[in-house]
Amino acid sequence: MAEVLDLKLTDLEDFACCGFPVKSTDSGASLVMAARNLSIAADRGLDICSLCNACTSVLTEANRELKGNKELRDEVNEELGKIDMEYKPGVKVKHFSRILYEDIGPDAIKERVTKDLGDFSFSIHYGCHYLRPKKIYEGFDNPEDPRTVDELVELTGAKVIDYKNRLQCCGGAILGVEESIALKMAKEKLDNVTTNDVDALITICPFCSIMYEDNQRKIESNFDVEYKLPVLYYPQLLGLAFGLEARKQLGFRLNKVRPEALLKKLEGDE
């Protein structure tokens, strides 16, 4: 999908976990992990395109703090120095959606849309760390009333359906601590989204997708409900609008909640 927009993505060898998962247990370790990843990107002369909200926030925040605080930078570099690495400011970190919105831009994306998805309607889950803390994102989007992903979805011609409490967190952060509560939170959102007739829920964060897609069946059996609500990662949707092949090129064969009805509707359109 990125290739259609002439975006060249490279997997960074030696990259590790962003650091967010250990921030609660040890912020210092989290910072060193983020700095290590940033230094790997700097060595390769590449910027970072992150696909997950939490990775985006932790890497962006670390980048900001280390750039602006020499004392902290020296402290972190003393650690990194032991394994012959060094943090140097200069790498940019951006979420994939933000790159689409800011760097490619709605107009250039719209030009490449070959299939109008006007018959479809979707609801969007933004996820917390895409928007907050606002300070680290230099005012990108409005954390209380976000619009960027709405606009990106509307580029495909599809309708965006608002729903109750759309800024509710996915609950993923406490999945490992209080699973039943995390699932209850995800259930609330699935309830609210399915009040309307939508073809799928669109996410921009794989961890939010875990809550709504991977855990959907578990929620259905725990609470004796049925949703069968497909959950698409935004690039999958955009890929459809670019006319790419759903199963082979866009990973629809890997979606946990089968998007068959959606794909059938799409084929029926042709």
């Binding site: 060193v32 650690e79 990194l80 032991k82």
Partner: peptide, 23 residues
């Protein structure tokens, strides 16, 4: 999936950080 090429080196700095409170 990419991961640290030298896990021992990775552990070395993270463990060190995990035993001290950097901030």
């Amino acid at each position: 999936i990419q991961r640290p090429e030298d896990p021992a080196k990775f552990q070395q700095i993270i463990m060190k950080a995990a035993t001290e409170t950097l901030r």
